[in-house]
Amino acid sequence: MNNSMIIGQYVPGHSLIHRLDPRTKILIIFFFVITVFFANSVWSYAILTAFAIGTALATRVPLSFVAKGLKPVWFLIIFTFLLHLFVSRQGDILFTVLGFPFYEESLIQGATLSLRFFLLILFTSLLTLTTSPIEITDAIESLLHPLKRIKFPVHELALMMSISLRFIPTLMQEAEKISKAQASRGVDFRTGSIKDRMSAIIPLLIPLFVSAFKRAEELAMAMEARGYQGGEGRTKIRELVFYKKDYSAFLFFLLVIAATIGTRM
């Protein structure tokens, strides 16, 4: 059987970006998103774009993968641009094509909005491309740790996420198995009206739910037998450590922010 299942868009690798602490990546992305909204000059945009593209190249993930991640949003980016171009009419008429006027201000606004959009999507997708889902989970648990004081169930949330990740491939295999069994009993998942196809899903969904519940029950029992009593007093083998490269990354990013702010108009 084919065991090479990829969860999400993670592309394993050993680049500097891959090896950064996942918390470093999340924090930098968070502040990058804010910084993008501060940019307002050609230079500030140029710096941020260069930084984003430079980081993308540094991941050594094939650009085709990066592009694939952006595919669903290309439409939105282009649509935003065209909407501004044709709908809003601000500033001087720059030129006219076939009697249709293009306004300077609209063109600039459309371009900057699409660029912002592009930068945000590109940069956040670098996180999921270079960080395994379980590392992201660890980082979230660690970053949300302070919320424990207000009784936010951080540990439970992280455990739920990691168990879900663990069982995604198992349940996918199961779904495949059941759909084959039902196809052998004459269910057609591929043709027919929408209503037919909806009802074809039921013989797949019910067994999947039944099995997921059974698994959950057995897993809970196994966890209890192995001494699981909640997060209290528990130690962890997965550990996140900030290394020198993380501090360097923060420092470099601070320079990028400073440069962006400095070149604002």
Binding site: K214, R215, I237
Partner: peptide, 21 residues
């Protein structure tokens, strides 16, 4: 499958020890 808690072999072997602190 239904007793494998960890996302990797190492995490799973450690699970019981983690619970004991």
């Amino acid at each position: 499958d239904n007793q494998f808690v960890g996302t990797t072999v190492r995490d799973d072997v450690a699970f019981g020890m983690e619970n004991r602190g």
